[in-house]
Design a protein around this nucleic acid. Structure first.
Length: 276
DNA sequence: ATCTATGCCTGGTGGC
DNA sequence: TGCCACCAGGCATAGA
């Protein structure tokens, strides 16, 4: 699923081909992706050009002349550039005809992805974007402010790391990898963790995310960056998807459990719960 | 105020 | 082979 490194990769890939292109028309076989009236949406974006593409957390911002198209890929959204409409396939739900004759096409089997349109510069007035915390790979994160939030939470640490309102950018894959590196059990209550442990988690999150960005993201299940390119971080995964494989540190079999309803991988020897 | 459960969706898988 | 129940899960929302 696209998390911060995957969305970053998509952004960089699309930038090389999309900047300067003007939207000539919009075709929406499944318009529910767009969270506003389709005709209004078309009126606003047609004749607008892509001036920049940015990212915050897992959100993509397509900056146009007067508006910003805010796109979230959720579980498996993807963008393709098609040379011709005949190349589009079953699950391409929103298609932008570009001035160079190509088509920017949004593909999403599960239809969970969203597109919202705001006036340029007002991206952070969107409720979904406004509530996001700081990016998990940011330099010099204020550990104390994070610690305060974690310290009063009576929930598993994994659930807090997935909560985008505190730190944003981590999803199921990178949370598992981060907690493995920090040697913290995903079900450990956040309130049981001390400042040193929180610091360790945050440092490892940055290491994992930065390395995944360098490798173009992680391809498991369905993720590909735009134009059908696989990521390479899947070769670096230590625990996620590795059930019953030996832990790369101690050789113990990796376990799969459920935490907050999500499939969770861990080494039961390296990531022991604390005795209190 | 916090936390948990549900709905949104489809394709893949395993059981029979 | 086909049918069915179940699973994958980010986020919004409803409910406890």
């Amino acid at each position: 699923m696209p998390e911060l490194p995957e969305v970053e990769t998509v952004k960089e890939t699309l930038k090389t081909r999309l900047i300067g292109q003007k939207i000539k028309s919009v075709i929406a076989p499944y318009p529910n992706i767009i969270k506003m009236n389709l005709e209004t949406f078309k009126q606003k974006v047609i004749n607008q050009s892509f001036t920049d593409i940015r990212r915050y957390g897992k959100y993509l911002f397509f900056v146009l002349n007067d508006y910003t198209l805010v796109s979230h890929l959720r579980m498996e959204g993807k963008y393709f550039l098609r040379q011709d409409l005949s190349q589009t396939t079953k699950h391409e739900h929103v298609i932008f005809e570009l001035s160079n004759g190509e088509y920017l096409s949004y593909h999403d089997v599960r239809k969970f992805g969203t597109m919202e349109l705001v006036e340029k510069g007002k991206e952070f007035t969107l409720l979904s974007v406004k509530k996001l915390g700081i990016e998990a790979n940011q330099k010099d994160i204020d550990i104390n402010s994070i610690f305060k939030k974690f310290n009063k939470a009576n929930r598993p640490i994994k659930s807090l790391l997935l909560d985008q309102s505190i730190l944003t950018g981590l999803g199921n894959i990178y949370v598992d990898e981060t907690l493995f590196r920090a040697k913290i059990h995903p079900q450990e209550l956040a309130s049981n963790l001390n400042v040193a442990e929180i610091t360790d988690i945050i440092e490892n999150a940055k290491i994992v995310l930065d390395k995944a960005i360098k490798l173009g993201g992680t391809t498991i299940r369905t993720y590909q960056s735009s134009f059908g390119v696989d990521g390479r971080f899947q070769n670096e995964l230590k625990v996620h998807t590795m059930v019953n494989k030996p832990c790369p540190v101690c050789g113990t079999k990796i376990e799969k459990i459920k935490v907050g309803g999500r499939g969770t991988y861990l080494c039961p020897n390296c990531q022991k719960r604390k005795e209190l």
